[in-house]
Write a protein that binds this DNA or RNA. Structure first.
Lengths: 195, 195
DNA sequence: GTCTATAGGCAGATAGAC
DNA sequence: GTCTATCTGCCTATAGAC
């Protein structure tokens, strides 16, 4: 039924709402009541799909990390030049800010100490995956001469990852996406070969 | 009395405890009950000193920002070379991480949307002060030849501020201060004149 | 799968005695 | 200034009917 429309299912709609709330208000900043109101169902129904808030949080990170990994694969397919790959990577961050959101795992990293262990581990896994991808891009770019920078590519990856997460973090209270864009552009320019 | 010992007063002890909690767990991650237990007094007593949690939060940011401003003044007095000023600035961040903390305002920036307006405004004020100081240091450094970088010093200041906040954010879940140090060193190296 | 109803706990906050 | 006692509200979670 509803042929021209994807039936996303209630679980996905719950995840969508929870994701938006977690990215704007933090994991400790929203409740089942917020989600229930947005979806027009009761809190009790939410527990049928996600027994506890911790399990909902785990599902949130898993789905986010998978989607992100898919986006990185896509960049590898579409972009050739390492500079373009980095720009596309930064555009992923820019996209979340357009909705007034923080990166999900950046937000959860702040709340790290209050989260259940499975969530905490998943967050580190997300950062590891990003770091590995960035390290490989930086190494490739230096090898083929499109990038130019000193030191270990792994350390450079830390600078890029932290720099973009931090640029999001600081830009959001200003309500000004341009603040992120300028910082991101300057940050990546430090790795690009002078033309 | 207690000549060789500074009497900090209950209000300060409350602020100390609340600050540590806010920097590790976030503003939505602690309660009056947490503070009361640490100090060995009741929740009701806390309300005598800070009527509401929002007012406590405001006092928290004000004190933090003043202390930070003092530290920046001190750097200006002690350090001559812009590269040393930047290193000393990064050391301020490093110091909070040693206690497993996030920068207070970086943490609060994540929770921005859930905070009372006065707190939100104070956070932006903190970032503005840091940005202004960094801009001036970068401009000075380029003028006297100790620093070398492209573009506007104000944009460079955004990269440094965001980069350090983000490096803290990402390093904390790893429980590894070294992760911050390497990222910070690499970040600042991009601004230092090659020797 | 969704509902009503409710449990049990913790949140921020207040009144009033000492 | 600090206490006991209490209020109201929201939180996560469960039981059981439909």
């Amino acid at each position: 039924m509803t042929v021209n429309q994807i039936d996303v299912g209630t679980a996905d709609r719950i995840l969508d709402a929870a994701e938006a709330l977690a990215q704007t208000r933090g994991f400790n900043g929203f409740s089942y009541a917020h989600i229930a109101e947005q979806l027009g169902i009761t809190k009790a129904s939410l527990h049928y799909h996600f027994a506890s808030k911790g399990q909902l949080g785990e599902a949130l990170i898993t789905r986010y990390a998978e989607r992100f990994a898919g986006a990185l694969e896509n960049i590898d397919e579409v972009e050739e030049d390492a500079r373009d790959k980095l720009a596309a990577y930064a555009a992923l961050y820019s996209g979340v800010l357009d909705d007034g959101r923080m990166c999900l795992c950046g937000m959860l990293a702040a709340e790290y100490e209050t989260l259940p262990k499975p969530m905490a581990n998943a967050i580190v896994g997300f950062f590891d995956a990003n770091h590995a991808w960035l390290t490989q891009v930086l190494a490739q770019g230096r090898a083929d001469g499109t990038l130019e920078f000193h030191g270990d590519p792994g350390e450079g990856a830390q600078v890029v990852l932290g720099g973009l997460e931090g640029a999001l973090l600081v830009a959001r209270p200003y309500g000004d996406p341009a603040r992120f864009h300028t910082a991101a552009r300057r940050l990546l320019a430090a790795f690009a070969r002078a033309t």
